[in-house]
């Protein structure tokens, strides 16, 4: 198991800023909203010295793939879509388990009596920070995959597509999340709330990057065009 403590650089912070503004609905058409941009910039500036970003990951060999299940030494993942993706992979196959957290510092300037507007800006900041940290943890395991000569799929999280949220348990069983201060509630809620858990497949050959390739639904989480041919 590898513990990562990523340090956000200027590029990461620019990405964070752009993601927050985009999620809040401010694209180029709303360029005049400098008050919102100032607030986001100020919030990010006050954060930079204190972000408690942490992550953990682990590679586990995949033992077998069935129609709805990917088996490994200490358990299995139950998702038909992800099983299809793993089944398409060639050569040695590994599942990478990861958890990343933005910690709690992102909301240190928020108080219970704050306006709804501030609550929303900070909540969006926390969510996007968690995604940026998850991207940084992902970069680390991708580097390791590269060194081993392995390709990797995109990451896949419980609660999305056909993978039941209750399978958060599988990820938490495979990783000692206490080491980075993340806990899972009986309702499968992570604390700190701005945390990301995910898996991905690594193999000698990974022809399909995301289960969206097998799916015709036009859902809001779709990551590939609908007309992308399935390998």
């Amino acid at each position: 198991m590898v513990i990562v403590e990523p340090v956000l650089n200027t590029d990461n912070l620019t990405k964070l800023r752009n993601n927050v503004l985009s999620k809040l609905g401010y694209d180029d058409n709303f360029a005049e909203n400098s008050d919102v941009k100032c607030l986001v910039d100020k919030s990010i500036q006050t954060l930079t010295g204190d972000i408690e970003a942490k992550g953990v990951y682990r590679f586990v060999p995949a033992a077998g793939v069935k129609k709805n299940e990917i088996a490994f030494e200490n358990g299995s993942i139950n998702s038909h879509m992800f099983a299809r993706l793993v089944d398409r992979c060639g050569g040695k196959k590994f599942i990478v388990f990861m958890i990343a957290t933005a910690g709690e510092e992102w909301k240190k300037n928020l108080t219970p009596g704050d306006s709804i507007y501030l609550q929303m800006v900070f909540d969006t900041l926390g969510s996007e920070l968690a995604e940026v940290v998850a991207d940084m943890v992902e970069e680390r395991w991708r580097e390791e995959a590269d060194q081993r000569g392995l390709m990797a799929s995109w990451r896949f999280s419980p609660g999305y597509c056909d993978w039941d949220l209750k399978e958060q348990n599988v990820i938490f069983k495979m990783l000692d999340a206490d080491k980075i201060g993340v806990k899972l509630s009986p309702h499968y809620v992570m604390t700190p709330s701005k945390s990301v858990s995910a898996i991905a497949v690594m193999a000698d050959n990974v022809p399909v990057l995301a289960p969206c390739s097998f799916c015709a639904k036009d859902c809001i989480w779709r990551r590939l065009p609908q007309n992308q041919p399935t390998p």
Binding site: G25, Y26, S115, Y117, M120, V121
Partner: peptide, 11 residues
């Protein structure tokens, strides 16, 4: 208008 503008009005 984006959602935060509505929230500012709500506040």
């Amino acid at each position: 208008v984006p959602v935060p503008h509505f929230l500012l009005s709500l506040d």
